[in-house]
Amino acid sequence: MIPYGRQDISQADIDAVVEVLQSDFLTQGPKVPEFERVVAAYCGAKRAVAVNSATSALHLACLALELGAGDRLWTTPVTFVASANCGLYCGASVDFVDIDPRTYNLCPKALEAKLKRAEAQGTLPKVLVAVHLCGQPCDMKAIGRLAKLYGFRVIEDASHAIGGKYNGEPIGNGRYSDITVFSFHPVKIITSAEGGMAVTNDDGIADQMELLRSHGITRDPEKMTHVSDGPWYYQQVALGFNYRMTELQAALGVSQMRRLDEFVARRHELARRYDDLLSALPVVTPWQNPGSYSGLHLYVVCLKTELLSRTHREVFELLREQGIGVNLHYIPVHTQPYYLAMGFQPEDFPQAQSYYRTAISLPMYPGLTKDEQDEVISALAHAMESS
């Protein structure tokens, strides 16, 4: 089976983890701060806070922006459920903005129209989670303009996008947002096995996320409510969580960061080759904004089903039967049973539904060979042949 994604682990990565295993610290040591400094410097951000998953990072980001009961979070329906669930964790309500049919990201025009209606109704969002699907950044300049105009905060869910650029600047620099979140799951662009990180230029936001990732406990006398009882003393000053990243994960992350640019460049090579190989097949290949440089976590094609005698599902299943581990990113969140129970309907966001009915994620990872890529194309052509 050729998977849709796969980590690339080098001997240097293994050596970095072994070094930590042989050290004095398996957790809460020097490697996590090092990983944070490396990522912040790469992105051009002031601060970074490493955690055990991007989901945890999204949760802490929402809490740091003081999202709570009575507030609203908006995001795209075409994303993993965590981009929406983070609002529910905080007691807020969640709504969605339909996608742009060309980029598959949240549509700025749909956002502006929805904001105008919400302003008239007194239902504006407090937080918008802009998801850089497949690694291609959203139109952050347009979103940033609307954020200033309507007074909401912006989280970039860049789980797919580390190593990418927007208007020539690294994703994560915070020019148009308050916080950017990255994922280091094994199928992502770089991995720390599991793990995530939030980057920001706001010291207050970073301090709050650091506090909440470790039970809301502080050993800083300046943050305590009274004079310390002694060198052993700590205080819980907030209700936090155990969202810490381990030293093993951070060591792997630091090592992987050394090859980040190489990984993304290789993904672009593969994407260009896919574009050429797929040009004669009845599929829509991913459109790339010329002003952006995608992280290319995913390579999604949309079937021209009107030209096929087989259904979307039949093509997908035939690919799997031929050993091609395709996937679908993502089932629109608003169609999940948990969200349907809130009152959402499948056709509330028609562009998202249209995407879902035709999209297939083809294998995309640095170790994918030309022969394997040829096998993917051959299998896809066979699956789309007349039945």
Rank of each mutant, 00 (worst) to 15 (best):
V227Y: 07
T191M: 02
Q236C: 00
G216L: 11
T180S: 15
P137I: 08
L124G: 14
L128S: 07
C138W: 10
I217V: 15
W232L: 07
K148D: 14
H160T: 06
T218K: 15
H160R: 08
F152Y: 13
D207V: 04
D202V: 06
R219F: 11
M197A: 03
A118E: 13
P125V: 02
Q208W: 04
H226K: 13
S192R: 00
R153C: 07
A193V: 07
H160P: 09
P186V: 08
F152L: 10
Q235D: 05
T191I: 03
A142K: 08
T191R: 03
V131W: 07
D139I: 02
I162N: 00
I171F: 01
G164S: 14
G122W: 12
V154M: 12
P170A: 02
R213K: 15
I190L: 03
E222G: 10
M197I: 10
Q121H: 11
G174D: 11
T225G: 13
V129P: 09
F184H: 02
A147N: 11
K148Q: 15
H185R: 04
A147R: 11
G216R: 04
A161K: 05
E222F: 00
L239G: 10
E194I: 07
V154S: 10
F184R: 02
G174P: 05
Y234M: 01
Y233I: 02
N173L: 00
T225N: 13
T225M: 12
H132P: 02
D139W: 05
H226E: 14
G196N: 06
M140E: 15
S214K: 15
Y233T: 06
C134F: 14
Q121N: 08
R175Q: 14
D178K: 02
Y166G: 00
V227N: 13
N173S: 03
L124V: 02
N201C: 03
G144N: 07
I171Y: 09
G135A: 12
G196E: 05
W232S: 04
V131R: 05
F152I: 12
V129Q: 12
S228T: 14
L115E: 10
C134R: 11
T123S: 11
